[in-house]
């Protein structure tokens, strides 16, 4: 396999607070290969955003402590100065966020903001940059792009603002686009528009995409590989098919079971995961999911390692044997279906 484009190695991010150390990311290793879409799934507080924000070196909190490496094109981003990282942001790796209103500057016209980004990285004249900006706005599906480039962010709807953000993010042909919950604030119809836009851009420019989301439906549509995060760690990682058709970790089962799905008959009850995620200040001993897991046993007091128990490349962090998982999986995801079995 070719070298990864972006290689996160044992990344740890912790925040010092008055109450103690919050271990937001606790030893995450991830590789992103050229042209692929990597989905990162998890609930709020699982560390998915902090991981990718750290890659971009966007966490400037003085109380944050970092450890580990992020290798991009042979260099460790974690060791770079803010000046050096600025040349990577936008041109090498760029990022879009959940709420486009807070990530666009409200007092500048959107065309100007895109020009600025282009001129930051390339020596082009303002009119040339403007032409590029209009071209980009057209490419992301903004009607009358030349006129709309002179509008302010508040004059766009949520979906259109996200398109502007995407235009800005891809303006310098980055190798990697990190999309942090890009459609969470949008309606389903607009979500479908934005997702198909990201797919199209990926095809046209060959950009590798990291898609952070909590929605299993979105990764089923978009991702080639998926990593599931829980309490700051990756608990399962594999190809899209492996994660959906052969999931190994009880937490992944819980995520799949708790969705109200339209493609299945309506169950009497949804399969909820009981309890709450643990505090990142006091992680339980052993498996962090243990307290909420129906299949906990003795060994779960030891921290399970992320290993390829189910096959090469398909990693999971659960002590259950492959056979045990086979036996209890369907019952965990859809208890009602199994009850009906004669």
């Amino acid at each position: 396999m070719a070298d990864p484009l972006l290689d996160i190695r044992n990344l740890k991010v912790a925040f010092r607070t008055d109450d103690g150390l919050v271990r937001a990311v606790d030893g995450v290793s991830l590789s992103l290969y050229e042209g692929e879409t990597l989905g990162i799934v998890g609930e709020s507080g699982s560390g998915k955003s902090v991981t990718m924000m750290s890659v971009m070196r966007l966490i400037t909190d003085p109380n944050a402590q970092f450890d580990g490496e992020v290798i991009y094109k042979g260099t460790n981003l974690m060791g770079m100065s803010q000046d050096q990282i600025r040349s990577i942001r936008g041109a090498g790796i760029s990022m879009i966020f959940q709420d486009p209103m807070t990530s666009l500057n409200p007092v500048y016209k959107v065309g100007w903001q895109i020009e600025e980004q282009i001129r930051e990285h390339e020596h082009v004249s303002r009119p040339a940059a403007r032409d590029r900006a209009v071209e980009l706005l057209t490419a992301v599906g903004i009607p009358n792009a030349r006129e709309r480039a002179d509008a302010y962010p508040h004059q766009f709807s949520g979906g259109m603002r996200q398109r502007v953000m995407i235009a800005m993010a891809v303006s310098c042909n980055p190798d990697v686009l990190i999309a942090d919950e890009p459609t969470t604030a949008l309606d389903v119809t607009i979500q479908a528009q934005i997702l198909s836009l990201i797919k199209k851009l990926k095809q046209d420019f060959g950009t590798a995409v990291v898609l952070i989301t909590h929605d299993m439906g979105v990764v089923a549509d978009m991702a080639d590989r998926i990593a599931v995060m829980y309490a700051g760690r990756i608990i399962e990682q594999g190809t899209q098919r492996e994660l959906f058709y052969d999931p190994q970790h009880p937490y992944t089962w819980g995520l799949l079971g708790s969705i109200a799905r339209l493609d299945r008959p309506r169950p009497r009850r949804l399969t909820a995961i009981p309890g709450l995620p643990p505090s990142l200040m006091q992680l339980p001993v052993g498996c962090a999911f243990g307290e909420r897991c129906a299949h906990r046993f003795e060994r779960c007091r030891e921290t399970p390692l992320l290993l390829d128990r189910a096959g090469p490349g398909h990693l999971d962090a659960c002590h259950l044997s492959a056979q045990q998982k086979q036996d209890v999986r369907d019952r965990t995801i859809h208890p009602e279906l199994v009850e009906e079995r004669p």
Binding site: G217, A220, Q240, R261, L262, D263
Partner: peptide, 20 residues
């Protein structure tokens, strides 16, 4: 209804989408 993402890759690939 057609815009709702389905948590099943095969079905997701085979479903016809109407993008409004």
């Amino acid at each position: 209804l057609s815009a709702v993402p389905v948590p099943d890759p095969d079905l997701s690939a085979s479903r016809q989408r109407l993008v409004l």
